[in-house]
Design a binder for these strands. Structure first.
Lengths: 222, 222
DNA sequence: CCAAAAGTGTTAGTGATACACCCATGT
DNA sequence: ACATGGGTGTATCACTAACACTTTTGG
């Protein structure tokens, strides 16, 4: 296992960035300004620098695109088919991120012509093998919502059970029974009542809850 | 996103190869014959060639090490910390494989000084970050046994329920209740009785079952 | 007839689902 | 007073877990 004398592939990271906006699950895409796939939409990404880890590269790209740090970020899969990039051998390590839509200020420093949020139910045709990457990310995202506490990373410190339920309904694109949902969540002992209720609502003021752990802590609940 | 002008990292694949042998879960390790980590044990692996996909690279390495094809192989995770290899920047795409111990003929063409099966409960100190990779592989392997039908890929076409149960007991390193295990397995409708019973056993001859799907078909049973 | 593993059922507890009405506030 | 979402309990069903004895063969 001596150092390789063969030509090396290039390595990129691509990040599927999800957010919940306008009661919908969105994904951030950029419009390519150069060939190949000029003017097509693509998942944001870029080359891994020689002195940064994969996760650092993903975080850097993410911050360049959305201006946010401290979001949920997870490695997804590495795509390395020989023909996946017409320019040559490019292996891409795919990540997915979940950002809090309130914190995003789009296009901080992007060098791309356009960046836009798309509903996952109305996606354009994508460059490279990005359609495959995105579908894979979506599947994993749903898995994470089902079996971990990622959902809480999208909520403010104090939140109502209805806010939480809304997020699940958007991600899974289906309605849940209010009573059963609450029973389930409360039985996990992950959250606790605060002493406050939400004010200035034109109906019965809902109880505010808080997550019992550090924000950003993701726990398996399998 | 033009072609990178920066120095490129090297890309390797490492494969954690599991097998059940001697009523124990084993993993194949090789003894390094050169620096760095000379004489330490390591997970087998090697450089990805410019004209082969990641999975092809993993299969090639696997066959070089064990002589087997057609085994269960799955991508695990990509490890890319800057300092993980003292020789320079090396990103490794980790895979795990599960081979049928009957089919293995060790060291087909390996260029390494020694290859050996280790019980997962008695592992030596490992080179690089391979301890981390191996523990990750083990966790995923158990997950796969719990939620998919990988176990069947280790059995002959016709097998007894006790054989199946043994495999689970070895992988999870714990005993299961015979009646509950059988009830559970049979309720999944994954296997069916054959017309045969196992012969030449010095006790009541057990029923032989067969998997209802193509061999190597892995199904989620979540 | 003895040793060895195969085969088989019941009960209790736990978690999931389906379902409808009253409550507290703002306007 | 009305509109709006908040909040709550019960019954059924499916799945899990604990547990012990009889059966069939070879030697």
């Amino acid at each position: 296992m001596a150092e390789s004398d063969y030509p090396k592939p290039s390595v990129t990271v691509d990040i599927t960035i999800f957010a919940i906006k306008d009661n919908d699950l969105k994904v951030l895409l950029i419009k390519r300004s150069i060939e190949p796939f000029k003017n097509m939409w693509a998942i944001p990404g870029g080359f891994v620098r020689i002195n940064e880890s994969l996760e650092q590269a993903a975080k850097r790209e993410l911050e360049e695109e959305t201006g946010v740090k401290d979001v949920y970020l997870e490695q997804l899969f590495t795509f390395g088919d020989v023909e996946r990039d017409p320019r040559g051998r490019v292996i891409t390590v795919a990540y997915f991120a979940l950002v809090n839509s309130e914190k995003i200020k789009l296009e901080a420093k992007t060098d791309v012509s356009e960046a836009k949020w798309f509903s996952v139910s109305k996606l354009p045709k994508l460059a490279f093998d990005h359609e495959k990457i995105l579908q894979y990310a979506l599947k994993r995202l749903r898995w994470k919502f089902e079996y971990t506490t990622v959902a809480f990373s999208l909520l403010p410190k104090k939140f109502t059970l209805t806010q939480l339920q809304k997020i699940y309904e958007i991600v899974f694109n289906k309605k849940f029974d209010k009573r059963n949902f609450r029973k389930k969540i409360l039985s996990l002992s992950l959250i606790e009542k605060t002493k406050e209720k939400k004010k200035d609502v034109s109906h019965r003021p809902p109880q505010l809850y808080s997550f019992r752990r550090k924000i950003g802590d993701i726990v398996e609940i399998i």
